[in-house]
Design a protein around this nucleic acid. Structure first.
Length: 274
DNA sequence: CCAAATCCCTGCGTGC
DNA sequence: TGCACGCAGGGATTTG
């Protein structure tokens, strides 16, 4: 997926498109990571209006009148699209929300790692219990060097794996973890507990910077990601190391290396990152 | 075999 | 010795 910048881009588009419109009913078209009870959802939110669309970590919250929300995660390949009901559905559409004006909000996911779930909110604007264990938002002041240094103390987990741990800080996935570590000059294989205060300050700064820049570009489209109207992101053209194995490092010209960490590919320059 | 994510299990080490 | 817990690493999930 969809890491934070991609989800943020989708949320902005969904908010623009959906707030104020009413959901008439839901239709379940195919299996996802979680089952979706369309009949129960229709009973709960049928004829209710969308009041807001929010993001927390990589989760999307479509708020519905009456303190309910659709909680969605895009997994690796999930996407929302909005079409007239007369338009043919996409091959991998799994869910459809029929709006009161005849348009349909559709959720498609080729790989089925994503989900949409109806949740109850303790109060309007609050978060459901499912999201309680998440770490701080990376673009908030709560994400800063000192707490990260303390949290990483004694940890031998590689720093790249550590910053992808959603209980440490949310929103950083496989692409932006490699990019932020490169920008900060930190070797992704270092133990998280071994970073100095100065290195944490640089890494926190670069995580924020790369995420902000990616949001401005509408995210990165590597393969499947699209925003709601089908447009691609632009940040893939600005990636310095992700997917660049064997290419010249933009800093020193040495080939970018690729290693496997926690089952995922990591891209870095062993000359520029120490 | 590879892919933007996450959950869950197992095994190990530590400390009470 | 037994147990709980934190931590680290790996597999499973799915389809193109």
């Amino acid at each position: 997926m969809p890491e934070l910048p991609e989800v943020e881009t989708v949320v902005t588009a969904l908010r623009q498109a959906l707030v104020g419109r009413r959901i008439r009913n839901a239709e379940f078209l195919g299996k996802l990571r979680l089952p979706f009870d369309a009949k129960a959802a229709t009973r709960r939110i049928g004829n209710a209006a969308v009041t807001d669309v929010r993001r927390r970590a990589k989760y999307i919250l479509i708020d519905i009148e009456g303190d309910a929300a659709l909680l969605a995660h895009l997994g690796m390949t999930g996407y929302f699209h909005l079409d007239a009901a007369s338009e043919p559905r996409h091959k991998h559409d799994r869910l459809a929300f029929i709006l009161d004006d005849g348009d349909e909000l559709r959720f498609a996911d080729a790989r089925r790692f994503g989900f949409v779930k109806l949740v109850e909110l303790p109060e309007a604007g609050a978060f459901p219990a499912e999201l309680a264990e998440l770490g701080p938002e990376p673009l908030s002041r709560a994400f800063s060097a000192r707490p990260m240094l303390e949290r990483a103390a004694g940890r031998s987990t590689p720093i790249k794996v550590f910053i992808m741990d959603q209980t440490a800080v949310v929103g950083v996935g496989n692409i932006y973890a490699s990019e932020a570590l490169f920008a900060a000059g930190v070797d992704p294989r270092r133990a998280a507990g071994d970073l100095s205060p100065e290195e944490w300050a640089a890494l926190v700064r670069e995580v924020k910077r790369v995420l902000r820049r990616a949001i401005r570009s509408g995210g990165s489209t590597i393969r499947d990601y699209r925003t709601v109207d089908g447009t691609e992101g632009g940040f893939q053209r600005r990636l310095l190391v992700y997917g660049q194995a064997g290419e010249a490092c933009p800093g020193c010209g040495q080939p970018i290396e690729r290693v496997r960490q926690g089952g995922r590919s990591t891209f870095f320059c062993s000359e520029c990152q120490r």
